[in-house]
Design a binder for these strands. Structure first.
Lengths: 319, 319
DNA sequence: TTGTAAGCGTTATCAC
DNA sequence: GTGATAACGCTTACAA
């Protein structure tokens, strides 16, 4: 008992014994068992669960860093989980984490099937979604302004005079669907018809994106510009444009390394994935502080910005 | 008691009551408290701690993915921690994780100060280091063949006839120091003198790398080739070469997107960061299985391979 | 200032 | 096949 008090700096223990306890603990490498402490205090484990779909994607690893940073700042630990977009795995993870009595959950949901993420089913554990909105459950979420960013980027192409514009994107997770919706909405508003042959959204990687772009560029009446919903599609499109010698102009979501050195004009929508993680953690910590784990789901939408990379001139500047 | 048995599928409970228990549990969203189970079973928490220096760097996020994948496959959870290269933070994290009775620890150590990572001080919790070797402690580690990869890459430059070769790299963490050692050793073996003005290893990001490369290229007798110890330095070097119109050839560690489309010949050393994580997890799980947490530190060195990207011809191929 | 008793939620053991 | 009891390591409440 005295040891317990001494190690928690309880003032009721005398300085002399406190020192003796500390010395002995150091010598024995003794550490109080925090699991037992949690159990006794009826507290949870001081941990929050983070579930992402694909940690190999820098978007999610930066999001994870944001969560870890904000959580560490509040003295919380983060349990990291990767679902590889598998809902069943997501469900298993959620259930196990709940059994470990984590304080809260930050999830990039793998699909629209989200019943297992309802705090009501999780003994009231608060849940915050990142990058994708809740479907059928009432929880906080942090989103990117995918729609706004997309319309802004496409507007750049319109301003430059383009009227035949193609779309390249990955299969429709919410984010990509919103970007496509931005593309369609703006063009419809401007009374510009979309040639559905030039809308391709099945490309997950650079290779398939390049192939799709080449097919679009080979059409009888090819587009003069392409809007790409992510960097993998943008890079694939760039390869296709360079490979075919077309002088197609590009706009895309995601800034990427060397984007300014391409032999093609490019506008990119830039944003900060780490901020999504930080905001999600903040929402979660607010819930934990206020003890209002259920209901009244907030929706935070983070802004994007645009960068124009003009055509890079291969001519070297002089030393 | 019957509930406890039923939920663990203990055969001694009758099928009928088992079903009743399961039904009630489902209705109430009841989950056994795994913290209490751990405490009672004198087991640890089924968790391993992962400590990396910088999760924003894809190298470490892929390593983390490897750990998570391997751990999940063995039914273990991963607590993720980021030190931002701060040893004091690393020490705090290690101590807290130990108090939570984690099963083991995988660490990318922030520095050569590693006393706090000694299992002897951690109640025998096994430790595996990733990407950097142990200093003064006897633990397993998983390394990349930094030395071999570097000599191979530089050999490419020698074979192409280069004799004046510069070096660009980040400040000397172990990995970068090994790559520099490979560079120096090979050139010394070949009797080629190194001009120390052309050896720069303070560049952490693309901007400073570009500046350093420009300074080297502006020397009275500039190098005909540059070896870069990581992708940020390679990209900086590329920008400098393109910017100054030099026809310097590049070799580097780290494959990167668009590396094949540069207007400069480039050889890259490629490797799989995820594999480091998987191997580290495997070593740790072996320790846990065999219960031999201390001593006899293994050292696993993972191979690298080389890819040559020839000069990309700006001439388009025909559609 | 220090020690004793009880209990957090679980499970091993023994009784019924 | 089921229930009672004790114990895992800790902390609150109370007693010495």
């Amino acid at each position: 008992m005295t040891v317990s008090r001494a190690l928690r700096n309880d003032p009721s223990v005398s300085e002399k014994t406190r020192q003796r306890v500390l010395a002995a603990a150091a010598k024995l490498h003794y550490r109080p068992n925090l699991l037992a402490r949690s159990l006794r205090l009826q507290q949870t484990s001081g941990t929050i669960g983070l579930i992402v779909t694909n940690l190999a994607n820098p978007f999610y690893s930066q999001l994870a860093l944001g969560v870890e940073t904000a959580a560490a700042g509040a003295g919380m630990k983060v349990i990291l989980n990767n679902t590889a977009d598998d809902v069943d795995r997501e469900r298993d993870i959620v259930n196990e984490l709940a059994a470990w009595r984590i304080e809260g959950l930050i999830v990039v949901p793998a699909s629209r099937e989200q019943d297992h993420l309802d705090p009501a089913r999780l003994n009231g554990i608060p849940v915050v979604l990142g990058a994708r909105p809740p479907v059928g459950i009432d929880v906080d979420c942090v989103l990117l302004d995918d729609f706004g960013g997309a319309t802004e980027a496409v507007q750049r192409l319109l301003t430059a005079g383009h009227r035949r514009i193609g779309f390249l994107g990955p299969p429709a997770v919410w984010t990509s669907a919103e970007r496509l919706r931005g593309f369609r909405t703006l063009l419809a508003d401007q009374g510009i018809e979309i040639d559905e042959q030039m809308v391709r959204c099945e490309q997950r990687d650079v290779g398939t994106a390049e192939r799709a772009a080449r097919e679009i560029l080979a059409l009888a009446d090819p587009p003069t510009a392409l809007f790409c919903a992510n960097s993998r599609n943008a890079i694939g499109a760039y390869r296709a444009v360079r490979g075919t010698g077309a002088n197609t102009v590009l706009a895309s979501f995601d800034d990427f390394e060397l984007a300014d050195m391409l032999e093609v004009p490019l506008s990119v929508v830039r944003y900060d994935p780490e901020q999504i993680g930080r905001e999600a953690a903040r929402l979660l910590l607010d819930r934990l502080d206020s003890n209002s784990s259920v209901g009244n789901g907030q929706r935070v939408v983070l802004p994007t910005s645009i960068i124009d990379y003009p055509l890079h001139t291969p001519t070297p500047d002089m030393r």
